[in-house]
């Protein structure tokens, strides 16, 4: 439970980063959401053996991190947190797909290894872009931007509530779990049974809290509609930002820049 607790603290830090005041931070959230979506679409649309064409895409996270003044190590650690999942997804590729695709001198590299590396690179790019988006925009603003871009309001409201109460719920579950640990004296306690009732209690408590929150909302005149209160502007800087990056991503997607660069260099120095 301690690790969940620190993960939540990290989430708070990610959120605090969004209070920064760089030119990237100041852009309208919609522009950043659109650019991130185009980026992710381009990256995931490659076929599974593509590796070299992915490398130029690292320019986007690199420039965003440096322009927005984000701590690069922190973002890297956040991405590394997801690595076990990626490994689980890709680890069997080298075993299943043994056809040699690339010959590096005496070393033959199988298609499985290449697709594994491709999965790794793609997840680093997409997850990294997601984290950077939240770190330069804030989760709330991302939700509001998604809503303005056409996501149904119900989803936006649910996401916002999830984000608001994830902190309360993890604190509550952390306390309950610590109490269980302390009384099980370093042993297993009563094993899975005690966990069952612990989770059940958490669910019931969450339910009660939801009722109280609803009551608090009704007490303040809630009638089922959330009123947007923040005006936002999609001006020239936003249009420039979207056009520049989207064009770049599409060009990178259509042209394998790594290969072009490679052939240019090998052409220059035969």
């Amino acid at each position: 439970m301690a690790s969940i607790h620190s993960a939540v603290l990290d989430l708070k830090r990610l959120d605090l980063l969004a209070n920064g005041n760089s030119p990237i931070h100041r852009l309208d959230a919609r522009a950043k959401v659109v650019v991130t979506l185009v980026f992710i679409l381009c990256v995931v649309s490659y076929n599974r053996y593509e590796l070299s064409a992915l490398f130029p895409f690292f320019i986007f996270p690199a420039i965003m991190i440096s322009q927005a003044g984000l701590p690069p190590l922190f973002i890297l650690r956040k991405i590394a947190l997801l690595c076990p999942f990626v490994l689980a997804v890709g680890i069997f590729n080298p075993v299943i797909d043994r056809g040699i695709l690339l010959q590096l001198g005496p070393l033959g590299i199988s298609g499985g290894w290449i697709s594994f590396a491709s999965i790794l690179a793609r997840s680093m790019l997409t997850v990294g872009a997601g984290f950077i988006l939240v770190a330069v925009t804030g989760f709330t603003a991302v939700c509001q931007a998604l809503e303005r871009l056409g996501m149904p309001r119900v989803f936006a409201v649910q996401l916002l509530f999830l984000y608001r109460y994830i902190f309360v719920l993890t604190e509550e579950s952390g306390r309950a779990s610590r109490a269980r640990e302390l009384r099980s004296c370093g042993k297993k306690g009563q094993g899975i049974h005690s966990f069952g009732s612990l989770v059940g209690h958490l669910l019931l408590r969450t339910w009660q809290r939801a009722e109280r929150i609803h009551m608090a909302m009704l007490a303040r005149g809630f009638t089922g509609v959330f009123h947007a209160s923040r005006p936002s502007r999609f001006g020239a800087p936003e249009i420039r930002f979207v056009l520049f990056w989207s064009t770049l991503f599409i060009v990178l997607r259509l042209q394998n820049v790594s290969q072009l660069l490679g052939s240019l260099i090998t052409g220059l120095f035969p």
Binding site: F139, T140, L160, F161, Y163, R164, Y165, V168, R209, R212, I213, M215, A216, M217, R220, G221, F222, T223, H227, S229
Partner: peptide, 23 residues
């Protein structure tokens, strides 16, 4: 309410205080 966590459900303090008047 007794527990302010029940009462503060909006993303920022501003949004929360504005919730009632907007309604």
């Amino acid at each position: 309410f007794q527990d302010p966590d029940d009462q503060l459900f909006m993303p920022t303090v501003f949004d929360d205080v504005a919730f009632g008047p907007l309604n």
